[in-house]
């Protein structure tokens, strides 16, 4: 069977019913290992002290806020170009999860910024571009809910998603292009990571755990959306039969 064959919603439901329980177990185990390392093994930072523990959730949320949008952009491309049956389902279901992760990136960043920078918020390039991302997620959710016809909603939100993808490199490189309170990239950068292995390993494990969590939530939400569309189609058949 080719990968494209799983574009069939019925096959997708069958596959995810088998995969999801295992994925959930792997996610829970990864979180258990990551949290153990964060609480009991990872050292305090020489400048920030124990406040650095916020990094282990803030950074994964920030990565996932962008990863989720890139997933939506890929799905939007699939919706517009190939009219892939699951592409719009994927894009629609990723939006609330992306909004939640972006909110958490902003909230945990603010809670980290107050003791370290002395302020909850500054209107600098990094923070403002992430706030714009959060507003874009909310706008896309509103657009999807406003248009009743799923095909029209899919097309409109796909176009808006692809227009908004320009914000992703702005977020990523904002710390290099403009002066900002936010620290520059320290994990994925030219010349290698600047974080000590004792902190980098827990951070990468937590990032993996949150990525797996995103995958679990996304697949669950996609299953719900497929059923919602089936119910809509069946209600229309029922209504047509009653006339």
């Amino acid at each position: 069977m080719r990968l494209i064959d799983y574009a069939n919603p019925t096959r997708f439901l069958g596959l995810t019913a088998t995969v999801l329980p295992w994925l959930a177990v792997v996610t829970a185990l990864t979180f258990a290992v990551g949290l153990y390392l964060v609480v009991f093994v990872a050292p305090a930072d020489y400048q920030q002290g124990e406040t650095v523990k916020i990094m282990y959730i803030h950074v994964p949320f920030a990565w996932l806020s962008m990863f989720c949008y890139v997933t939506m952009a890929g799905s939007a491309f699939g919706t517009l170009v190939w009219r892939h049956p699951l592409a719009d389902v994927s894009a629609k279901c990723a939006a609330p999860i992306g909004a939640a992760f972006t909110f958490l990136a902003l909230a945990t960043g603010s809670l980290w910024g107050k003791p370290m920078w002395g302020t909850w918020w500054v209107w600098d390039a990094r923070l403002t571009s992430v706030l714009v991302l959060f507003i874009m997620y909310l706008g896309l959710i509103a657009l999807q809910e406003t248009i009743e016809d799923p095909a029209r909603a899919a097309k409109a939100s796909a176009i808006l998603t692809l227009v908004g993808v320009v914000n992703i490199p702005i977020i990523k490189f904002s710390v290099d292009w403009w002066n900002t309170l936010h620290q520059p990239s320290s994990v994925f950068r030219m010349g290698g990571s600047t974080i000590a292995a004792s902190m980098l390993v827990p951070l990468l494990i937590m990032a993996t755990a949150f990525t797996l969590l995103f995958l679990v939530l996304h697949l669950m939400a996609m299953r719900n959306e497929i059923l919602r569309r089936r119910i809509r189609a069946m209600r229309m058949i029922e209504a047509a039969g009653a006339e």
Binding site: G49, E50, T51, K53, I54, H58, A107, L111, W112, K114
Partner: peptide, 11 residues
């Protein structure tokens, strides 16, 4: 969690 435990626990 040190002197900033409130911020860490809130996050």
């Amino acid at each position: 969690f040190g002197t900033h435990a409130g911020f860490i626990l809130a996050a």
